[in-house]
Design a binder for these strands. Structure first.
Lengths: 206, 206
DNA sequence: AAAAAGTTAAACCAAATGGTTAAAAAGGAT
DNA sequence: ATCCTTTTTAACCATTTGGTTTAACTTTTT
């Protein structure tokens, strides 16, 4: 499926992928309509099938692109050579910035987990993590040996970091409802969060 | 829409709601088929419309039931009279148990956030929280005044608690993929988590 | 017992949906 | 310019979908 993609403007295939991303992220696989994607791309619907055999194929292409983009966002900070206690603020900073710039991504991935958990599992498994976890593990151990932190399971720690950064974005409507917040209040709370969350984790480790 | 619901066995309306819950939680609103719900309930599809006007009405009924069940699970522990540092282990214990017994609930609520954030916001807003937040706030203040913990914004703390408990369940396929875990390994990790996560939070507060 | 109200089943329906087809148009090679 | 290949278009298609209709059946009320 190598289609001609040169040209001064975006190729048809790219148009399709870009529009499919928008529509799939907004509506999910089941809610998205092929005609809607075609309309959004400004093309004839039959082209969706010409370039991507069927809806599922198109969806998987979008999904793969999405996690290919997501993983580096997670991995770079985790595998940097910095000591652990410097990694943590970096992690939150980079990660939360990524989510703010791509607000639909966590939601999209999470929605797909219910529909097709296997795709998500294999999608994340297939990506080469470049020894991210090993490097993180090492950083944790070194910090323990230096007496900077108490012993901690690196898996649990990563999980805490990811939970504390992603979930508050995902849970936005719940938080608005539960705390009776409007958009501005939610925004303020999230800005405040950026300031305090890494300190929370660092305190937990000492 | 008060339908007769006595009888030795479950009424048709209850059958519908129970089956709708199962199917909507598995497939979401867009993926669920009315015929499938009817088949699951062992009834004729026209009855779905007789008892619940349309698909959306049925979905909202299921959604409301779901959060009516969810809120007490969150609220009781948060509003108990116990001191904060006792509340935290209780919170994780009760909350994680609830999710384990209702594994589809977080996923269901989160999926709906994308499709219909307004419904989620108003759903959570409408529920009477019984001054949960005020009580929690008070517990936090008292703990600070007694010098047990450092000052902390109660909203951020609730958010941390909820993030640390829910997200690892929601993220199951990601974790399996990222850490190359099978079902048994994931299970072990979550059992371990139950043991360490409240200590993590308590350390963070001191 | 008869009438009224409630429930159910099966057939039906219009529109939507993902996909197919064939011809026209566009692009590339000779 | 001609031929071949690729891309695009517009019409078409079979199936699915949420919903409607009507009559039969069941329960409740008079």
């Amino acid at each position: 499926m190598v289609k001609k993609d040169e040209g001064s403007s975006e190729s048809t295939q790219e148009k399709i992928l870009n529009s499919a991303r928008v529509v799939f992220m907004a509506k999910g696989m089941d809610g998205a309509r092929m005609q809607e994607i075609a309309d959004h791309a400004g093309i004839n619907k039959a082209l969706l099938h010409y370039y991507f055999r069927d809806k599922e194929t198109l969806f998987k292409a979008v999904f793969s692109q999405t996690i290919l983009k997501l993983i580096p966002a997670l991995s770079e900070v985790l595998s940097s050579d910095k000591p652990l206690l410097e990694k943590i603020p970096d992690f939150f900073s980079v990660h939360m910035k990524f989510i703010q710039e791509n607000p639909m991504v966590p939601q999209f991935v999470i929605s797909e987990m219910s529909r097709n958990p296997g795709l998500v599992i294999t999608g994340f498994m297939a990506i080469k993590h470049g020894g991210v976890f090993e490097k993180f593990n090492k950083a944790v151990q070194e910090s323990v040996e230096r007496g900077e932190i108490k012993p901690v399971d690196p898996t649990q720690l990563i999980l805490n970091l990811v939970s504390l950064s992603i979930f508050p974005f995902v849970a936005k409507p719940i938080l608005k409802g539960f705390f009776n917040m409007d958009e501005s209040q939610y925004g303020q709370m999230m800005e405040e969060r950026k300031k305090v969350v890494s300190q929370f984790v660092i305190n937990a480790l000492k």
